[in-house]
């Protein structure tokens, strides 16, 4: 993999680098930003995009709910036991299990979504520098177009404190 990236000591210069890259015509998804903490004071993109996670959580909850409903329904009807004169399929007690599995479903769906969509290393997304851990912010371009490297180096080197690396 080839990449050009700069390491920046603070959010302001990283922001500058991102802005310059944008001005140079790169789309947000072509710009890689890596930091050791969420940078809520900066505009790196992806700010309000993930609201669909809530919908997936709801869908997971609905799945859990139907599983729980199915379980209690099948149990009650495959072997209808009389216990203490309670109805065979009793809503009140079953609601408890249904609630728990609903919540479990939504939790698992959320975590699953997170792992699949944002974690798990993927091909072509491997740009990383361990210096990020010590507070450096990485801004770079993965697999830049042929011939654009010198231009990118200049763009990335412009903000104060920048150290440009090419691999």
């Amino acid at each position: 993999m080839r990449a050009v990236y700069g390491l920046y000591p603070n959010g302001d210069s990283a922001q500058q680098a991102v802005n310059r890259l944008r001005a140079a015509g790169l789309a947000d998804r072509e710009i890689t930003v890596i930091s050791a903490q969420p940078m809520e004071d900066c505009e790196f993109g992806e700010m309000d995009k993930a609201s669909w996670m809530w919908w997936i959580a709801c869908a997971g909850g609905l799945t859990g709910m139907s599983i729980a409903f199915g379980l209690s329904w099948v149990t009650a009807h495959s072997w209808p036991m009389n216990v203490g004169g309670l109805p065979t399929f009793a809503w009140w007690p079953n609601l408890i299990v249904i609630f728990e599995l609903t919540m479990l479903g939504s939790i698992l769906a959320t975590v699953g979504t997170l792992i699949v969509s944002a974690l798990l290393p993927r091909k072509g997304q491997t740009l990383y520098d361990p210096e990020v851990t010590d507070g450096q912010i990485l801004v770079g371009v993965e697999d830049p177009a042929e011939g654009s490297i010198p231009g990118l180096q200049a763009t990335l080197g412009a903000p104060p404190g920048a150290r440009v690396k090419t691999i």
């Binding site: 072997w79 036991m81 009389n82 216990v83 203490g84 309670l86």
Partner: peptide, 20 residues
């Protein structure tokens, strides 16, 4: 041998239940 036996609904495995 209660009709509304309190021991029955609390059993998690149906070990205690009511026959016909």
């Amino acid at each position: 041998q209660c009709d509304n036996a309190p021991c029955e609904p609390v059993c998690p495995t149906y070990a205690s239940h009511h026959t016909e």
